[in-house]
Design a binder for these strands. Structure first.
Lengths: 112, 112
DNA sequence: CTCATCAGTTAGTCATGACTTACGGTAAGC
DNA sequence: GCTTACCGTAAGTCATGACTAACTGATGAG
C-alpha cells in the first residue's frame, strides 16, 4: 500500500522533527538544518524520503529550495487509521463486557 | 513523545499485517503466525513491540494468549496527525494561491 | 566571466532491528 | 506422576538505513 512509505517516513525521529517544523511554516533546507543536530545533507536526504512519501512538496526559489507540508500523505495515514478506529473501539468495548461477565461468575456482583 | 513507539511499531510491514488481522478480531499468537510468512517467535516479538506501543492488549486463556487491538495507541497517533491537519491544509491552500498569482503575472507560456 | 551560496548525490561507515533456531516455563489432558 | 500444546526469551546472523565527508550542479551578485 502507499501508506507504507508514509509510516516508514514518520518512524524516524529526525524526520518527524523536520515534519513538525514544516508544519509551523514553509522553510528551506538550510534553515531546517540550522537548529537540528544533523548535517545539511542528512536533512536533504530526509526531505527526499518525506517527498516520496507524499508528505511534503518542494518549490525552487533562486538557489534555495522551499519545502512545505503536503496534505496528501497525511490524509492517507488518517484514512488508514480511521479504517480501524471503529472496529478497535467496538472490540475494546466487547472485551470490557466480557471481563465484566467473567468477574460476575467469578466474584458474584459488580458495583451498581 | 509517546507516539514515537507507535509510529516505529507501525512502520514495519509485518507488524502492520498483524495489526490489521487483529482489527478483524482477537486472535492468539499461533493463529496469527499461521498464515504469515514468518515464524511464531517472530510474531511474538512483533506483538511485544505493539504492546509496548499501546496498540494491542493481551489476555491469558489457558496455555494460549489472546491479543486484541487497544484504542489507546491508535488515538495517540490520530491526535498527533490532527494537530497538523488544519495547518497543512491552510498552508497548502496558501501555496496554491501564491502559484496562481505567479502564473497570472507571467502569462502561461511553457518551454517547448 | 568569476566567485560565492545553496542544495542534491555518492561512497563508505556504523548502529539498529527483523529473523531463525534452540531453550525454558506453564496450563490442560492422559 | 508424565506428556502435549502453546508461548516467551536468548543468542546469533544478516540486511537495512541514518549519518558524515567530499563532490557536482545550478543560480545570483560583483
Amino acid at each position: 500500500m502507499t501508506n507504507a512509505k508514509a509510516f516508514a517516513a514518520l518512524a524516524d525521529p529526525t524526520r518527524r522533527e523536520v515534519f513538525e517544523r514544516l508544519a509551523r511554516g514553509p522553510s528551506a533546507v538550510g534553515e531546517l538544518a540550522h537548529g537540528l543536530p544533523v548535517s545539511r545533507p542528512a536533512v536533504s536526504q530526509h526531505l527526499k524520503v518525506l517527498k516520496e512519501a507524499g508528505l511534503v512538496t518542494d518549490r525552487p526559489d533562486g538557489t534555495r529550495r522551499v519545502y512545505q507540508i503536503d496534505p496528501k500523505g497525511l490524509g492517507q495515514i488518517r484514512a488508514w487509521l480511521d479504517q480501524f478506529w471503529d472496529a478497535a473501539l467496538e472490540a475494546f468495548k466487547a472485551e470490557v463486557e466480557r471481563r465484566d461477565e467473567s468477574e460476575d461468575s467469578d466474584n458474584g456482583k459488580e458495583e451498581p
